[in-house]
Amino acid sequence: MLEIRNISKSYGKLKVLESVDMTFNDSGIYSILGPNGSGKTTLIKTILGMVIPDKGEIFFDGIKINWTYNYRSKISYLPQIANFPDNLTGRELISMIKDIRNSNLNEEYLINLFDLKNHLDKNMKHLSGGTKQKLNVVLALMFDTPIIILDEPTAGLDPVALISFKKLIKELKKRGKIIILTTHIINLVEEITDKIIFLLEGNIYFKGNIRELLEKTEENNLEEAIAKILKENGNV
């Protein structure tokens, strides 16, 4: 469904991605892991067209999508930082995004799930960071898209919201979606991930499921496996 071919990107002298190939065909949860600066966010943003790769191509359903934008109606994106225009209300933001997407989904379910009802008519500048992050999740996930990209989704969520969020993700997976996420929370990875993509200095170091990773690193749990990889590659 989504294929990345030979993508390279560097910022000045800093090489962020080096000839990365990647394919997302089956439904499931893909976790992109890696130390800071390994190119996780850049990879995601490249898929979304926010970062323009120096080289390489991206295909969606077999069609090249570099420099186009319509394919994004098939992708939901949850940005890392939730920051909205100060003087708009949650309700307005929701209708704005719906306007833009020309799509009319029932967001009520998500609003109830995250208990946002009472905050929807307040201006953004009056909302707490946590509430904003919940709204962020609502805005990202209220559409029925085959691909969902989540950049550090759990940052700023309180435990109750986190539980709801995990529940939601599992449900989405059940509905056959491709979910790509980046995170630092190992627990989350262990709990929900089907496949791990480990990025290191712009290259794919490992691709596979948790079991395979443990085998490769000869460790007993994911946390230690990751620590070992980082240590071996001089990243700690």
């Binding site: 979304l48 994004r72 939730a82 995004i97 997407r101």
Partner: peptide, 10 residues
């Protein structure tokens, strides 16, 4: 950040 969010829209 909001621009980023918009950029991910079609």
């Amino acid at each position: 950040e909001f621009t980023d969010l918009l950029l991910a829209q079609p």
